[in-house]
Nucleic acid binder design. Sequence first.
RNA 1: GGGCAAUUAGCUCAGCUGGUUAGAGCGUUGCAUUCACAUUGCAAAGGUCACUGGUUCGAUCCCAGUAUUGCCCACCA
Length: 901
Amino acid sequence: MKEIPKAYNPKDVEDKIYHKWEESGYFNPDNLKLPKNGDYFSISMPPPNRTGTLHTGHATMLAYQDLMVRFNRLLGKKTLWLPGTDHAAIATQTKVESILYKEEKKTRHDLGKEKFLQKVREFAEESKKTINQQVRKMGSSCDWSRERYTLDEGLTQVVKYTFIKMYDAGLIERDYRIVNWCPRCNSTLSDDEVEYKEVNAKLYTFKYSKDFPFAIATTRPETKLGDTAVAVNPKDKRYKKYIGKTYTVDLGHGKQEIKIVTEDSVDPNFGTGALGVTPAHSIIDYEIAQKNNLPLIKVIGEDGKMTKEAGKNYQDLTVEEARDKFVKWLEKEGLMEKIEDTKQNLSICYRCDSAIEPLPSLQWFVRVNKKVTLAGNKYFQNKTIREVALQVVKERDIKIIPERFEKTYYQWLENLRDWCISRQIWFGHPIPVWYKDKGKKNEEIFVGLEAPKGDWVQDGDTLDTWFSSGLWTFSTLLDKNYKKYKTWEEWLKNSPDMQFHPTSVMETGYDILFFWIARMIIQTTFILGDIPFKTVYLHGLVRDEKGRKMSKSLGNVVDPLDLIEKFGTDALRVAMISGTAAGMDMRLYDEKVEGARNFVNKLWNISRYILSSVSEIKLVEEKPGPKTLADEWILARLEQVTAEITLDLENFNFSGASDALRNFTWSDLADWYLEISKLQRANSKLVENTENILLYILGKLLILWHPFIPFVTEEIWANFGCKDLLMVQSWPISKESEQKEKIEKEILYPFWKFEEIMMTIRNLRADFKVDPAKKVSVSIIGKNLDKIRFEEVKEVIIFLARLDKLEIEKSKPKNSVSHVLEGVGEICLHLEGLVDIKKEKERINSEIKSVSGFIKSLEQKLKNKDFVEKAPKEVVEKEEFKLKEQKEKMEKLEEQLKSLK
RNA sequence: GGGCAAUUAGCUCAGCUGGUUAGAGCGUUGCAUUCACAUUGCAAAGGUCACUGGUUCGAUCCCAGUAUUGCCCACCA
């Protein structure tokens, strides 16, 4: 007898087990013993931002990824899960700025660039430590020896090369365009980094001047100081006569020319139907201006204040001040017609929630609509970035799960504008561009890895953080010692770890489909001429109990570490994976994790029962021969559930796999076979074999559960006294050829037989036979079911009592039960009753009709060559099996019908 | 405005290309329980699969429409 604690206590084992794993070196694929077929499986961990701590989103991704990684490692594949962190330029800088202000009431400018960056680096380093510790807490089996950081030397080198290559190909250019400007972050943002918020606003309707023929409406009067046109719908009769004319107006800051132009998108029913065009401060207006060759007047500056061009009266005022002043002026001049309340969709910065100010600025852009041809690149042959990004998904080089997100992705690509990649942030990858005589007429530009000799000044901006994240799947696999390689091409080609590229799966939340997934596809196809990953699996977002998004202001943020503290990592992992479907949001709350914890404890006690009671603890690797029907049944169920969850896991149906395994473990194994085993072990002829079966099943079960709940399974495994760890055992799957035979002989037969008995007993169902004498007989026969589950047998009686056709009273069911209780070997009940032949005939006939229809449709399906050839084997086999089943059923029904006549 | 999804038990959700009796967890109710496990066992109650039509021998599933909710994108100046 071995002493095992009554309840599983995760706190006692988790850290200890993780240590064991880490020390074993098995996280590193170089240390795995591998079979000949060299299949690999790799995942790049989406690098958490170095902004602080782990949240539920991270916990979710870690649970899913570790599940896949452990499963594939057990399958014997060369498995790599590469961890790392992201510098998250804007997010990290913002965070440090707010800490700095809170603690010292200083801004980054008070400190100066170098000192401030030093602070950010320290903060990022601290965050990394915390995060890595928490990633370990989740049980992640990632290879720490390959850990990377987006600001690593090697990765920085890749970023530079990529920039240069894209610049040389003409895909990156510097241009003066309207950008999204965040006055608080003091930086540009890409279109995807802009969010929207509905706010109450005022809609002002006014005329530019007394002699201007009609009024316009706007929520932002102060920008009208920069208007150069008014756009009307070409079909709008009211304004037809003014189209093409130019008016000179004075808005109190000098003369300005307003031209009347047409634009299809103008809604004649909104406001006055006339749109004041401010080319410098609205992207739409900018596009209208370009079509009509209108000048730009920049009235708002990067600091969020009015510029010189806004006129003396307004210069240096904030936007709000300028608005008040201008509105007062309009009212005084009698130009204001009305002020109404309205709702406005305000654009805000996704990091700091400040209002975005669109304004023209000289920035670096990635051109998405320029056709390029790259030597040796199978994708870029006279194609644009947009076309290639579309192609790889449309042609299924990359598969997205769930599929519906492919459509979302296409839509994003259709609306895609050039990507602004320069940021006026200090923390990040400097842009590898140098200028001579910057801003002067004879300005020279140099794009390269290092500063050229002479009087050159580097671009002060940094790159969008997603520019470096977009390279993540391969930049992390390149040899750290890049100096070893003569050329960039050699580095890409000959780095040993590039054997893991393209990565097998990219697993992440659907919220960064555009931010990240799309960028990786764009950049990787450009640089490597290859895809970054074969499959994208998108999980949903974690919400609170009421389905709300977690947010600090609501105070409903769930800390995964709290849940781990309360229920253990394994429980949290199961809770996150079960009861969800791909891409669907999930709710997380204590009760759910508690349920999972209870299951983990159940598994613990199953093994406690087995391990503490067998005469000898040993690993039984060969399947013991079954001696009873119950043995046959449980072994067959194990095979069946193994096949089922293997298929589920391969098809990314994680929730289905965990449900199936849980049902097998709890209902079949614990509730049935373990009870039966107690009786079998009382029999001296069966005891040894039964114990072997228990040990065999437990061993396999631990492997099957390991990807889901690695800690508890590894801890139980240790009791077997094996040298090697559970995490590197072999997944129990038999060879394909054997599999088919097994299904016929070993799985189906005992499964159905025992299942039938259980069904009969449990679900109050029995096999009916109607004989010519109008009598119904119900019989239940099961060997080796003696003295087991008497409660269940009671149900049979209750069932019979419910069939009012049967003369139940006479058979005294209660006595029958006691009779059965005492009986040994066989349970046999026999009851008789009357049946309505007419109704029975009708029932059978209608059933025959439906079954024959079913058979017909199945036969048709199997005749269809397209289906037989294209559908997966399992599906075709399943259909064939169904046909067989239905034909048998048909025979039975016909027999029944005959017997009624 | 465009798109995507959801609507299944009191609650949270599964349901894998249409097939006998629609499932699970939690909750509720009753009973049991020194024998691996109260983090337990056995059972019960609880569903017109949102609604209306259509296709089919057969629809929770496919098609059309309606209603409600959520999300994404575009954006109203």
